[in-house]
Design a protein around this nucleic acid. Structure first.
Lengths: 188, 188
DNA sequence: GTCTATACGAAGATAGAC
DNA sequence: GTCTATCTTCGTATAGAC
């Protein structure tokens, strides 16, 4: 594990808990026990570069989790995706949520970062839409269904943080499952 | 309009756009054109007090909007609630979202504020659950349905900010309407 | 690559005049 | 109630040694 990578992982953690505003150089150093002298060696662009690269890292990692989760179709996929959030919420004592959403809600510091957030989320949605279409849902129906799924899961993660329980996420997954059971053609 | 109230409205605006971290004394003064010398006169608790009171004000205002929206039942209510968000999003050029969610996602500065956020959201949920029950939904079913509605609408507001369109919110309301059409006993 | 020290700026808060 | 000036703290960034 390189110092550079440790710093980025610290950046992702801070994004999860407090959004872009929470990613300060001091906070990363305190959390990762990395040397202050290395910050501008690894990141000549300073704090802004750390935020940007942490966001990229988080976006790619979650995209991979989504794609993996969807291997057995959209219904099982959403449940696995929710299980990933459950783990994040519980291991962080409900302090951490979605790092990408946190940047969106906290207001991106600049347009480049805002655009990056939009691109990442659109990519997640595209995976979900493709999975729905592969399961037999029409392209037209897949669009609002994928939006509904992403909005409700991301919203539920936030409600889990406020209630300090995983109940909202479980409820939403159950409702989504019921909804998709009607819409997605069943096999067997 | 008193100076004190102007400052709080500025605080609510900043909460919407950037969460608690965005509510700085300087930002409020720049936005509301109120005198710097009045800050600690009206708010001896300083910045923390402004954030806390702004959150209260926002929570109460949105609770009132929810209760009003639900006057003709849950289905019409969710549509009216979404229309409120549409107005906020469009008039702010998609820069503003839900101030209470923004505090939750950005990490509340202290436990008192975190507890306040939880209380506010639980109150919104209670209104929605009561409306569902009044429409004939069982108390058991009303809980996850209200969670689903709140999570998906709040999530959609965030997606609207990233896409800079109201499409996610419209899609979610349509899906919720279809879902409730199945669950809520129809009259007539 | 990493260290210490320091410059610089932003923001919260206070003091005392009016 | 509002003013200006000032103090302090914190966070970013740089300089120069090792």
């Amino acid at each position: 594990m390189t110092t550079r990578h440790k710093m980025l992982l610290g950046g992702v953690e801070l994004l999860r808990e407090r959004g872009a505003a929470g990613v300060t150089v001091d906070a990363i150093l305190a959390r990762t026990a990395t040397p202050r002298g290395s910050v501008y060696h690894h990141f000549p662009g300073g704090r802004g570069q750390i935020i940007s690269e942490s966001l990229d890292l988080a976006g790619d990692a979650i995209a991979a989790i989504i794609d993996d989760s969807l291997a057995d179709g959209p219904v099982a996929g959403l449940r696995r995706f929710a299980a990933f959030w459950t783990q994040i919420l519980q291991t962080s004592d409900f302090k951490a949520g979605c790092p990408v959403i946190a940047v969106a809600v906290g207001g991106a510091p600049d347009d480049e970062l805002a655009h990056k957030v939009a691109t990442i989320i659109e990519r997640w949605q595209a995976s979900l839409r493709a999975s729905l279409v592969a399961a037999g849902v029409s392209e037209q129906r897949a669009v609002p269904l994928a939006t509904m799924a992403m909005a409700s899961i991301e919203g539920a993660v936030i409600l889990c943080r406020t209630t300090r329980t995983i109940t909202p996420l479980n409820d939403v997954v159950d409702e989504l499952t019921a909804m998709l059971a009607i819409v997605v053609p069943q096999r067997g």
